[in-house]
Design a protein around this nucleic acid. Structure first.
Length: 367
RNA sequence: GUGAGUGUAGCUCAACGGCAGAGCACUGGACUGUGGCUCCAGGGGUUGUGGGUUCAAAUCCCAUCACUCACC
């Protein structure tokens, strides 16, 4: 930890890995298949990315472990040459609906690419990620859907904990293996999962099984209670979240790492995050609007292009639409995190938080 | 000029005597550890025009206009 402010649980930190340093709180852009869709590695770095998230399961299916290993590891393969975190594919077991069998020792899945069958287990997922030479490894876990009954949540907690122990046993020590807390929105199961995960004394801890459709108040309740039970001297990673407002509130709860498809996926679907709220660039209202997407943004897109042009690109289905929208949205996210880090360093995080949340909610309630 | 064909939503077309629809386009919304420029919703019609037959016409009949093709 680099700075502390007794008025908040937010932390300003630094995570050092073999391939680089990550200033936290940090946002990790999502590059599931080895690419942040529509953006080059150079641009990513210029925008302020310090670590990217890829997916071990997707990359294992294609191009395969051998290809990435021969080409010098995932980071080099991508031309990124910085820290990389790979998700295990545990999330895909419930999101992709390709699960064939969820067993005690592993899973059998059917490839969404060619229908082939694959047996995966915690040790194999760790081996794949070590072959990829990633900086942060996420273990295979069981992410229960929402809603799920107590028995299902309980089995997800138990299975994830046992798999985590097996992951740790298989881990040779290259990169940092994080633990993942499960338990859905059940406070007691969350508590049990947190204890069993922390007991394994890992380099970092993630909170999974949230942002799967549960009501927002419940999400924050669980996120807050869980953060309080995680060790203060290790990075806390809240998986798969969130909106800009979510990130501000979660940093305030003591989380350090985030990933989310929202800035990149929304960009491709025409929604921009701006200092004046969400902006759907396809709206007819912007057809002749000469102003930049976000008047307070200094990103390359806002410095160069009008809303009218971005609307034209989006309506026309131009590839450039996805590229420019993604650049802006990522710039917005990275700047938000940079602003929070600066506020933490200067001891004015509570003031910054109330200010920006006030602006965001004021925008949300505008007509 | 003669003959044939076609006229239905902005566009391309269904419905062929019984509540006028689809796709695209348009308008708005959604997207939270990313198979998918995807998903959801909405607006939009005196069926070219004027008559006729019928309980009932986009549909059948007559006229007329426009367009297309063929032949003079």
């Amino acid at each position: 930890m680099l700075a502390a402010d007794p008025r908040t649980r937010a932390r300003r930190g630094r995570m050092t890995t073999a391939q680089g340093t990550v200033e936290t709180p940090a946002f990790m852009p999502v590059a599931t298949g080895g690419a942040v869709k529509g953006v080059t590695a150079d641009v990513l770095r210029a925008l302020g990315a310090e670590i990217v998230l890829a997916n071990a399961y997707h990359l294992y299916l294609r191009p395969g472990v051998g290809v990435i290993q021969e080409l010098g590891g995932l980071s080099r393969f991508m031309g990124w040459n910085g820290p990389v975190l790979t998700d295990s594919g545990g999330f895909q077991l419930f999101s992709l609906r390709t699960l064939v069998r969820l067993g005690e020792d592993g899973v059998r899945v059917r490839s969404h690419l060619d229908g082939s069958l694959h047996e995966l287990d915690p040790a194999k997922i760790v081996a794949i990620q070590e072959a990829f030479a990633v900086d942060v490894l996420m273990p295979l876990d069981d992410c229960a859907p929402y809603p799920a009954d107590h028995a299902r949540l309980s089995s997800a907690v138990d299975r994830s904990a046992r798999w985590l122990a097996q992951s740790k046993a298989a881990w040779t020590g290259s990169g940092a293996l994080f633990g993942i807390v499960q338990g859905g929105v059940d406070p007691e199961l969350r508590g049990e999962s947190t204890r069993r995960t922390v007991d394994l004394e890992l380099p970092g801890y993630a909170v999974g099984g949230l942002s799967v459709g549960e009501p927002r108040p419940l999400f924050y309740e669980i996120a807050e209670a869980t953060a309080e039970c995680l060790p203060a001297d290790r990075p806390r990673y809240l998986m798969g979240t969130g909106t800009p407002e979510d990130l501000v509130r979660l940093v305030a709860l003591g989380y350090d790492l985030f990933d989310c498809v929202l800035p990149t996926r929304n960009a491709r679907n025409g929604t921009l995050f701006t200092s004046v709220g969400r902006l759907n660039v396809r709206n007819a209202a912007y057809a002749r609007d000469p102003s930049p997407p976000d008047p307070e943004c200094d990103c390359p897109v806002c410095r160069t292009h009008s809303r009218a042009y971005l609307r034209h690109l989006a309506v026309s289905g131009e590839i450039l639409s996805a590229c420019l929208n993604t650049i802006h949205n990522l710039a917005f996210y990275f700047r938000l995190l940079a602003d929070m880090r600066e506020a933490l360093e200067q001891g004015r995080f509570p003031e910054y938080t109330s200010g920006i949340l006030g602006r965001m909610s004021a925008v949300d309630h505008s007509p």
